[in-house]
Design a protein around this nucleic acid. Structure first.
Lengths: 150, 150
DNA sequence: GCTTGACCCGAAGTGCACTCCAGGTTGTCT
DNA sequence: AGACAACCTGGAGTGCACTTCGGGTCAAGC
């Protein structure tokens, strides 16, 4: 295993390159996400540059929480060639909407986290009265069946 | 169930308010994420504004993929009051790093998705030669044991 | 040619985060 | 008072995405 700049990659090399374990790569293949990976004379997998490119696409979609089921659908649409083109565009556009929503959620959470860190940091160097941060430490009976307006 | 502006919320109302099912809320409570929720005389849960605030924090952390295990740790640190303050800051700072990494991944993926959509759209109104997008449709034998350099 | 590590396969197992179920109680409405 | 929804509990079940296992094959260095 001296050469690295070659025409194909072994499963292990592929795993390192793509950041996906060989087992997962086999799993993806068996789920029909990869379509026919080439083999050598001894039946061992040989991944090529196209495989790498495709797996990178899959990884992008996976890390943005596209379920395997959808990846399958996408792979199927690719297999259909031009017939699947419109479907692929639809799928990607729908997913993009999802990802944009995720990013909004992330940004909201980041704001909240930053705020909490600030508040905590201030408390840390002023050793203030205890802040329970919304967690009840002293449960009380509330609501005996009749509602009291605020 | 005419009143809505009251001092407490039933499980169902709480679920609607927080976007988390009553079952999940019970599950969180039982996992020690919520600490002692108040009950009415008939043993039914009554969530108050503090509960809402805290669950919103939990939800922020969960949607950014903080595992339940960490939420538990965080809740425990809150329970410890000032003794847990430093730990809470550490936890949130570590998580913030994670979330920032997530956002970078998201942005990378968005770029890729946008690019693919462009490429596909162009193909769509030019009906070009088939693009397999890195998926092998015609497997070939490669590598009989001897490596060929590129 | 023998060892050692990488690889093959199908099948079973794992961890996470819920989600549902059965059987019983409570609350509200008419 | 009767009907009906919402609630309670402990425990079992689900879906997802891997991950591990067992038993065998392959390949590269000494």
């Amino acid at each position: 295993m001296a050469e690295t700049n070659v025409e194909w990659l072994t499963p292990k090399e592929m795993a390192t390159r793509c950041g996906i374990s060989p087992e997962t790569l086999r799993y993806y293949e068996q789920e029909g996400l990869l379509n026919v990976v080439a083999r050598n004379a001894g039946n061992q997998r040989r991944y090529d540059a196209d495989d790498v490119a495709w797996v990178e696409v899959l990884r992008c979609l996976r890390v943005t929480a596209l379920p395997i089921r959808e990846l399958k659908r996408f792979a199927e649409l690719v297999r259909q060639g031009n017939d699947g083109l419109a479907g692929r565009i639809d799928l990607l556009k729908a997913h993009r909407r999802e990802v944009l929503a995720q990013r909004r959620a992330l940004d909201g959470a980041l704001k909240m986290i930053a705020h909490k860190i600030d508040v905590y940091a201030q408390q840390l160097d002023s050793v203030p009265p205890v802040d329970t941060h919304g967690m009840n430490t002293t449960p009380t009976l509330r609501g005996q069946g009749v509602r009291r307006a605020l």
